[in-house]
Amino acid sequence: MRYTLRVWRQRGPEESGGLVDYDVDGISPDMSFLEMLDVLNERLVLDGEEPVAFDHDCREGICGMCGLMIDGVAHGPERATTTCQLHMRHFDPAEPIVVEPWRAAPFPVVRDLMVDRSALDRIVEAGGYISAPAGAAPDAHAVPIPKADADAAFTAAACIGCGACVAACPNGSPMLFTAAKATHLGLLPQGQPERLSRAEDMLTAQDDLGFGGCTQTGECTLVCPKGIPLETIATLNHDVLTAALRGR
């Protein structure tokens, strides 16, 4: 099969970019979207052109490194799917496919389809952890945790940090990312001592980094490859509000 792609090309963060049209031939329906880009890139290299830069690594939907805006939808048309797990059988060869990078001020374009998402690391560094030095831990069975809480914590912890939530949010807010971490750790007994400060510190970091504010449009959860629920945001807000009321 043959597809027409309109791919965002941009040499560096300071340079201007634009959409460039490419035809790719010999695409099988079993190829993943990234394998289709591999085919394009091998051809470009042989033609002496520089290939399209894009981030990817595990190619099994867990590392969170890939992420493209495909026809205006983060990670493309399939729900709960990362770009690397998206297959070409879902695309109509008659329609051109528009491929853009994530767009947000705190995610500057590095090159082509590759963006710098280290702002998400900064949010976690601000407090997304439990302080537990190695070797100081009590026995793992010292504190039983109700199964429901452990399961809910897991659901939030499944976030892969791909940044699709930011890319899709009309406000450019990473609230779902931050809330997933706050909820994961806040639901566990081990996470209680730092619960309020964690929520507050991460939210402050998020605002300081230049992200937009959350208005709960729900776009994030629709494109989230791991289906992190919107309710995590309420949990984060609850903790932040409690922290404010207690005059922290």
Binding site: A132, G135, A137, D139, P144, K147, A150, F154, L185, Q190
Partner: peptide, 22 residues
């Protein structure tokens, strides 16, 4: 054995049984 203790302390959500144990 220490690894499991360490991971639980730092909030790794291991699967649990209904009694709350791992």
């Amino acid at each position: 054995t220490q690894i499991i203790d360490q991971c639980v302390a730092q909030g790794v959500p291991f699967a649990r049984e209904y009694g709350g144990l791992l």
